[in-house]
Design a protein around this nucleic acid. Sequence first.
RNA 1: GGGCGAUUAGCUCAGUUGGCUAGAGCGCUUCCCUUACAAGGAAGAAGUCACAGGUUCGAGUCCUGUAUCGCCCACCA
Length: 1089
Amino acid sequence: MPTESPTNELAKQYRPEEVERDVAKRWDEAKAFAASPQDSSRKPKAYSIVIPPPNVTAALHMGHALNNTLQDILIRWHRMLGDNTLWMPGTDHAGIATQTVVDKRLQNEGEPALKDYKQLEAEGKDGREQFIGKVQAWKDEYEAVITGQLKSMGCSCDWDRQRFTMDDQCAKAVREAFFRLFKDGLIYRGKRLVNWDPATQTALADDEVEMQDVDGQFYYMKYPVIDDEGKPTGEYVTVATTRPETMLGDTAVAVNPRDTARGQFIGKRVELPIVGRRIPIVGDEYVVIPDPESDDSKARMASGFLKVTPAHDPNDWEIGQRHALDVINVMAPDGTISRDHGWDDFENWLNSSHADKQTLDALLGQSREQARKTVVKWFEARDLMAEIKPYRHAVGHSYRSHVAIEPYLSDQWYVKVTDERLRGAAIDAMAPDQRQPLADAYEFERKLSREQLENDGVKLNVPGEKGATWQSELRFYPERYARTFQNWHENLRDWCISRQLWWGHRIPVWYATATAGDKTPIPIDSMKLPGKVTFNCLTEEENNTIVVQAMAGRDATGPTFAICVPPDCSEIERKLEAVGFTQDPDVLDTWFSSALWPLSTMGWPEDTAELQTWNPTNVLCTAREIITLWVSRMVMFNTYLHGKLPFKDVFIHAMIQDGHGQKMSKSLGNGVDPNDIIHSHGADAMRFTLTSMTTQTQDVRMPVDMVCPHTGQMFTPKFVTSGSSQSRVAAPIQDSPFAKGKKMTSSFGVASGQVKPTDDAPLARNTSEKFDYGRNFSNKLWNATRFALSKLAEAENTDGGGTGEQLSLADRWILSRTARTIEAVNKSLAEYEFHNYAGRLYQFVWNDVCDWYIEAVKPTISTPQGARSRQVLATVLDVSLRMLHPTMPFITERLWESLSAVAPKRGVRGLDPNENDLLVTADWPVADRALVDLHAEDIFEKLRTLITMIREVRTVNKVPPRECVEVSVKIAPDLVGEISPRQNIVESLANVKLVAIGDTIEKPADAAVIVRPMVEVYLHNQLDAEAEKSRLTKHLSDVTGQIKNLEGRLSNENYTKKAPAHLVQESRDKLTALKRELEAVKKQLAELG
RNA sequence: GGGCGAUUAGCUCAGUUGGCUAGAGCGCUUCCCUUACAAGGAAGAAGUCACAGGUUCGAGUCCUGUAUCGCCCACCA
C-alpha cells in the first residue's frame, strides 16, 4: 500500500550521483558487461567494437565522452537485442606524446629528466630503463584516471579484458607482425629526410609538426655558369630560395625541360659560390616555370632555376634520387653548420679557384640563422644577389621546442604500404558502391605492381578472386568519408615507422656490420640458429624462424646485416648479442601497435576463440582526423595478417568545439573533463545531450562555463588570447564573481602548466548550459515514472490482454505512437543517426506521454475503469525506459527496477519484456504492427487541436487558468460522433464545461470565438471586443494570404498538369477548408461591428 | 595550393529522394507554485533559409559563381 510504495523511494527531483553509484554497483556485481566467446552457441549473432584506445598522456575530454557514449549506445543496444556483444577496452601508449609530457613533468618538478637519463646512458649506465620506469608510472596513473572516467560515464566495456598497446599480449602481436612483414619484404630500411628538431635533437612525426605562418624573404641568388674546363662563361643562373644557407649543400640546379626560355641550360654546369663545388644543371619536371601573370604564387615568385639540396629539403631529396645526385649534409644535429656530418667533399673544392676559404671557416659552427646572414651578405657584397622579396609562408615548427623543423637525413625503417598487398587491400576493402573510379596514375601502378607480384610468385588475397578470405564490405558513415579514405591511399607514401624515442616497442632488429664483400660475416651457423645467412637476400628455411636482410648504407663502412627476431626467442636475442649484434635503439611509431588493435586485443597471433568470434568487429567509431593514420593501417594489417577486415562499418562523428569554435584538444588545453559535467548535470544528462547533438554534418559547439568552487554557482569565465595560434582560452586565474576577493584556477591554467591549484585558489570545475537539455529530460522521465508508480502501486498487477475494445482512444493512440516510435528508433540506430534516435524519444516521452497521454488519463487512471490505462501506462514507460537505456543507462536502470517491483507484468501483450533483474540485459522492445492505429491517431490529433484552440481563446481573453468556463463547439458533422464521446478529455484538459457540441450550434451573445477550418469554439460570456477584433483581423489576413497562395498555385496549369495528383488534390481540399474558415472569420468580425 | 563541410529565429542546431506561409531546445513576452515534475505547465512573439544567378509547375533542399567560417591533406620555390 502507499506507505510501502516504491514511489516514496524516489526523490522529487532526480539526483544522479546516488543513482549512478548504486546502479554501477549492481552492474558490476552482476558482471553485466562480461562477454564470452563460448556464448556464441546461445547467441549466434556476435557484435563487437574495439575502443579507440585513448592516449595515456592525459585525462579524457568531451570529445572522448562523445565518442564513447556513441559506442556504448551501440553496444548496449546490441546487448539488449540478444547479440553476443563485446566492447573491448584499452589504452594507447602514445609514444612521443607520453614521453614528452613525462619529461616536461620531471623538468617542472626539478627531478632528473630525459636529458639526464640520456647522459647516464651515454656514460654506459642504465638511463633508458630508469626513464621508461618513470613513464610507466605515469601510464599507470593516467590509465587509472581514464578507466575511472569511462566507468563514471557508464561505458559498458568488458573491463576484465582491458588491454594496453604495450602490454605483453600486444607486444607479442607487434613482434609477430613486424617479423612477418619483414620476412615478406614489406618492411625495409632506408635513408630519408625526417622532421628534425635541432633544439631537442629528436625526429618528429609529421603530425607533431605545427605549421606556422612566417614572414620571410625570397632570395634570388646568381650562380656562375662554367664551361667544360671549369672557366666561367660569364653567364649566370638565378636560383630562388627562402633558405640561402642551405646552398652550401647544393649538388645541382634544376630546370624544367619544358621551359623554353631556360631549357638550353640543361647539361651545363655551375660553380657553387663560396664552396667552389661544380654542380650540374639538370632537367626536372618538378620545377615551376615562372609566370608573372599566374594565379599560382609559386609561379609568380619562381626564377625557373631551382637549387637542389637533397640533404635539406624533401623535394630536393626526390630530385636527387631521380638524378643520382650527391647528398651533402652541411649541418650538425644541433642545426649549426658543420663539415663533420656528411659534408664529404669539403676538402675537395677548398682549393678550387672560387672557394672562399675564409668565409667557409667563419660559417662552420654558425647557427642556421647566422649562416643565412653570412651567406646573404656574401652574395650582396659580390653583387650576386639579384633581388630579395618579402614572402609569407608556412614553416613547420616543433610542437615541443617551437623552433623551425630542419629536414634531416637519416636511416629509418619503413613499411612498404605502397605495396599492393597493403594499399591494394585497403582500396579493395571499400564497398563497391562507395568506391569511385581509381585515379589513372594509381590504376596504372596497381596493374604493374600486381603483375610483378604474380611473377614473383606472391599470392594475393583479393576480394572476389579465388581463395579470397574477405569481401569488399568496408562502409563509411557518413558516406563522404569514403572519398577521403580512397584519396589518401591513391597518394600514399611509404610509412616511416622508426622513432628516436625510448617509450615504445623497440624495433626487433639486431645489426652487425661486416666488411665490404664479406658474404658470411656472422657465424650464425655456429650458433645453431635455424636459418641460413646469405648476403643480400632473404633466407627461406622451413620454419622461417629467422629472417635476415642485408643492406648497404651510403655512409656505412660496409654492408650491415639486420636480423629480425620473432617473438618468444629471447635466447636467440642473447646469442646474437653475444656475437656482436646490437639491437636497434629506436622504437616503433605508436600507430604500428594501434594498427594491430583489433587483432592484438583478441589474442592474435594465437588462433583464439575471441578472434574467431569478434574479428571482424562490427563498427569503428572515431573522429575524422584519424581516418588516415589509423583506419587505413588497421585495414591493411588486419587483411594482410589475418585475412579479414578489421571492421565492417566506420562511423565518423563530429568534433567537439569550445564556445569559440576551436577544436577541443589536449594541446590547446581547452578540454573539459567529462567528470565535471557529470558532477554538474549527471552522466545520463551528459550522454543524452551529446547523443542529441550528434548529427551527420555539424561539429558541435559547446560554450564552456565555470563553477565557482567557493559558492558552487555557475559563471562565464574571462577569456584571454593564448599562444602562437591566437586561441581563446579561459584565463589561468579567475576572480570569483560571487565571493568577493576569492580566486580560482581554470582547467586551462592547470593543463597548460601555468598555475597549480592551491587552497586559496582551488581548481574550478567546468560546466556548460548545453547539458541542461539532458538534465531536464532526465528529471521529466524521473517524474513521469514517479507518477506512474504512484498510480500502479494502488492498482492490481494483472496479466493484461492484447489490444481490444476496452482500450480507450488515448490508450490506442499512445500504443500506436509507441509501436511507431520503436520502428523509428531502430532505423535511426541502424543508420548511426544518433540525434534522430535521441530526438524521437525526447519527443515521445515529453510530448506524447507526459503532455498528452498522462494528462488525458489522469482523471480516470485511479478508478476501476482505468485498469487498462494503468497497464498501458506501465507498458509505455517500460518501453521508453528500454529504448532510452543505451543513451541514459543509469536513470533507466534505476526506474526500471522500481517499475518491475510494482508491475512485474506491464500488461500489454506483445510489448512485455522477459523477466530479467537488470535492464542492461533485458530485451529490446519489438514493434508490434498490430498496435499501429492510424484512425485513433487521427481522432486524437483532432482532440488535441480542439483543446489547444480552447486554451488559446481562454488565454487571449484572460480567463484565469483555474476558472472553469462554459464553451460550445461548432464542428463538421462527420466529426461530431468522434469527438462528443470524448468530451470529458476536452473538459479536463482545457478546464471547461462543454455545454454544446454539434454542427448547427449558434454562437451565443457575448461569446469570444476562435475559428479553424472545421471547428469554431465559442467561449461563453467572455467577450473582450477589442482583443477579439484585433485577433480576428490578424487571422483574416493570414487566411487571405494562404488562400491567395493556393489559388495562385492551382490556377497555374503547369502545376495541375505536372505535379503529382495527390498533391493537387491536397491543395484543393486545403483551399476549400480555408475558404470556409475565411467566411467564418468574416462573419465573426461583422458581428463585432 | 588540393579536398571536404558549414552559413536557417537573439543563441545552439534539425529539416531524409525538390511539395514548407520552414521546426526543436534555450532565451524572450503573458499567465499559472493545478494533488508526477517551477529542472514544471498553458498560450504567444520571433526567420528575404549568407549573397547573386540558373534549372523546375514548384528551391531551405538541385546546378554555377561570390563571400565568410571550420576541418583534413600538402607545402619552407
